[in-house]
Computed example of a mutant assay.
Amino acid sequence: MTEQLPFRFGAEVYTWFMNNDGQTHKGRLGHMIEVIANAQFTGIQPIHFWMGDLSDPDRLEEKLKEQGIELAAIALALDWNGTEETEQETKEANQTISLLKRFPGAILCTVQKPSGRHDLTSRRRSLVNIVNNVSRRAMEKGVPCSFHPNSPHSSITRTEEDYQVILESLDHTATGWTPDVGHIINAGMDPLEKMKEYASMINHVHYKDWNGEPEFALMGEGKVDLLGITQWLKDRDYSGWIICEDEGEKALDDPDFVTLHDGHWIKEVLLPGLK
Rank of each mutant, 00 (worst) to 15 (best):
S135T: 10
C145K: 01
R117V: 12
A93M: 06
R102G: 08
P114G: 13
R102D: 11
A93P: 03
T121G: 11
I107Q: 02
H118G: 14
L99T: 05
E92M: 12
E92R: 05
S98E: 15
F103T: 03
G105Q: 06
T96V: 12
A138E: 03
L127N: 00
L120E: 11
C109E: 04
V143K: 02
G116F: 13
K101E: 12
P114C: 15
A106H: 03
S146A: 15
I97A: 05
T110W: 00
N94S: 13
P144N: 10
T96F: 02
A106K: 00
V143T: 08
K141E: 11
N129Q: 13
L100D: 01
T96E: 02
S146R: 04
N129S: 14
L108F: 08
F147W: 09
P114A: 15
G116S: 08
T121N: 09
A138P: 06
I130G: 00
R125W: 00
C145E: 02
A106T: 06
Q95I: 12
V143F: 07
S135D: 04
I107G: 01
A138L: 09
H118W: 12
C109A: 13
S98Y: 00
H118T: 14
R136Y: 06
I97C: 07
C145V: 07
G116I: 12
I97V: 15
N129Y: 02
A106D: 00
T121F: 11
R102K: 12
V131H: 00
I97L: 09
P104C: 10
N129H: 08
S146E: 06
L127P: 01
K91E: 09
E92K: 07
D119H: 14
L120S: 13
K91Y: 09
S126T: 14
Q95L: 12
G116K: 14
D119K: 10
S98V: 08
P114R: 07
F147D: 01
T96D: 03
N132F: 05
S98A: 15
R124C: 10
A93F: 04
N133Q: 10
P144T: 10
S122D: 15
V143L: 08
R102T: 13
S146W: 04
V143W: 01
V143M: 07
A106S: 13
P114S: 15
L127T: 02
K101H: 02
V131C: 07
Q112I: 10
C145M: 11
I130R: 00
I130F: 02
Q95W: 06
V131N: 01
L108V: 11
S122T: 14
K91N: 11
G105M: 07
V111D: 03
P114N: 11
R136I: 04
N133V: 09
F147Y: 14
R102N: 14
M139W: 00
I130S: 02
S98K: 06
R102P: 03
S126E: 05
L100M: 06
F103G: 01
K113R: 03
L127E: 01
V131L: 04
A138N: 06
A138F: 04
N129G: 07
T110D: 07
K113Q: 13
I130E: 00
M139Y: 04
K113Y: 14
N133R: 11
P104E: 10
L100V: 14
S146T: 15
S98M: 07
V111N: 01
G105K: 02
A138M: 07
D119T: 13
R125E: 09
M139R: 08
S115M: 10
E140K: 08
L120N: 09
N94T: 14
